[in-house]
Design a protein around this nucleic acid. Structure first.
Lengths: 319, 319
DNA sequence: ATGAAAGCGCTAACAA
DNA sequence: TTGTTAGCGCTTTCAT
């Protein structure tokens, strides 16, 4: 910058101001300096600026990457979240520092202006851990009572309700829920489902399955059949589970959807091109990511931010 | 740090050294300072350190995120790459700055010590663009002749060869290749496939399909059938394509694998739990990510680094 | 409209 | 083994 100042015959500070497009600087000097900078390939030293401004213009995104075969954030659809976050932060002039939970103790995370915590697992411990950083933080997941953090998530409860409504409206009386309610988000879906059904005096069967895989869905249905359970509809907590369930149903000679209706979750492209095309609850991950980003930025700038749930929609296809 | 120095009754530099665990500092002073730092919640100012050291300890990972429905890096499997990169960089004390191609002009990217370019598309333009940053750079993809960059990728050519070998060994004489050879990586697979088949006087049919989707696979087979092409084996460039092809084959009354053998690519969990379980070429993304990371770090430290191709394995299942 | 001085928090080089 | 000095490259405050 000093060199540039010499070249332009002005002082360092004028260069600084010119590059920041400050109206304090005469328009002609400004453009001249900017051109000079371009010509000479001048690169602003970000560290120096950050030191001076005491701001890193960086948001740390912490991904809970469990080693288990549980649904992790490296799964396909949640990653659209990252896309949304990245898009929004970038266009606001912030960068995304990506970390896993393991590496998050690194110095660079403390340097961030804010934190976005992405994790669907048992959340409270992670939240407490990062709270200690004392940075503005926004969490993706389900809002639990007495939790003072800003949480963004999709309206899982409403997702469950909408499936219950659908089942009731097509005359189903013996629904099954497949999933792992240890995840707060899944628990919400279950609660919505159960509560809405209860209003119609229907009580669903809970098939607890920890993994979100195809074979887990197959297994759940086999298990239902083995114990001769009576059921006419299945709400599975992921499209993969739902597809597994359908496969098992077909193997066992059931018709989908005439004998048994099946609804999945996530509305993945895969489910949509499944045979038969899967009915599923859609959540808008991209939008969720953008919202997360906007909320941290608000907090970073000292503005208030509220928790917010994104709407979910039941997409009815052939199952 | 100055405060800490006062507290400990030493100078700033001693604190600096103590926190860096320098053997120059007496072990007792060292531990005392470290404890004081912990107690008082001292946080190193990363920007200041970066400014002083002229190093950001950050590697920018640039993801080519095309708006098209082409295979993008936000697809499930390539993301395991990110996992590998992140793991390796983190444990080396580096952070990952995640950017998409759009946002990559941001100041923060220039501040990185090195760049990892992740993109499967038409690569040369992207490479040229980031070359201008003058930073150590490593590219994921296929090595093309006359390209002086460090490229890490999986041995796509060998992947193609191994499928050809398999087809020949089980007596197939009329193979089909489904995929988009505009991607350098796919082109490599095709070349390996064609060359190896040629050694056995077999010439495959190329079914060019731009999208890597299930329906694209369905469509390719329908098209083959419509034009009454003769074929007894299919090498599809992704598991999704392969699954679509199988679905279409079954619909058309063909038996898999007795009438037609099908091999996919990526060995995705989904393919493995497909019915019938899909044969597929496995590439080790995780390992690839780690390798990419190690190569940039080498370059950053001024050591030489060579391009490297990771081995691929044909996993034979039921198709 | 421009500039001079000061300092953000850290560490490398050179003393002591 | 510890400390002093200097300076990384930038921007804010206060002149001019």
């Amino acid at each position: 910058m000093a060199d540039l100042a010499d070249l332009a015959g002005v002082s360092k500070i004028t260069v600084s101001r010119a590059l920041a497009d400050s109206p304090l600087v005469n328009i002609r000097t400004r453009t001249r300096v900017q051109e000079l900078a371009r010509e000479h390939g001048y690169k602003l030293n970000v560290s120096a600026r950050n030191l001076r401004l005491r701001r890193s213009h960086t948001i740390a995104v912490i991904v809970e990457m469990k080693p288990s075969s549980d649904r992790t954030m490296w799964d396909p659809y949640p990653l659209t979240l990252l896309g949304g976050i990245s898009q929004e932060l970038t266009s606001a002039g912030y960068s995304v520092l990506l970390t896993t939970r393991q590496g998050s103790s690194a110095a660079a995370v403390q340097a961030a202006d804010g934190v976005i915590l992405l994790g669907q697992g048992v959340r409270q411990d992670a939240v407490r851990l990062y709270d200690k950083l004392g940075l503005p933080m926004v969490v993706w997941g389900a809002k639990s009572v007495g939790d003072s953090h800003v949480v963004v998530g999709s309206d899982n409860r409403h997702g469950g309700i909408s499936v219950a409504e659908r089942f009731v409206s097509i005359g189903r009386r013996h629904p099954v829920f497949i999933g792992n309610p240890d995840h707060p988000e899944i628990a919400e879906r279950l609660h919505g489902f159960v509560d809405e059904l209860a209003r119609h005096n229907v009580k669903p069967l809970l098939m607890r399955r920890d993994e979100f895989t195809l074979s887990s869905g197959v297994d759940a249905v086999h298990s239902l059949s083995r114990r001769k359970a009576r059921f006419d509809s299945i709400f599975a907590c992921s499209d993969l589970l739902a597809m597994g369930a359908i496969r098992a149903l077909v193997e066992l000679g059931h018709q989908v959807p005439s004998d048994v209706s099946v609804v999945g979750y996530d509305d993945s492209p895969l489910g949509a091109s499944f045979l038969p095309p899967l009915s599923s609850v859609r959540q808008n991950w991209q939008e969720g990511g953008m919202l997360l980003a906007r909320k941290v930025l608000a907090l970073v700038e000292g503005q208030p931010a509220e928790s917010e749930m994104l709407p979910t929609t039941l997409v009815v296809r052939a199952t």
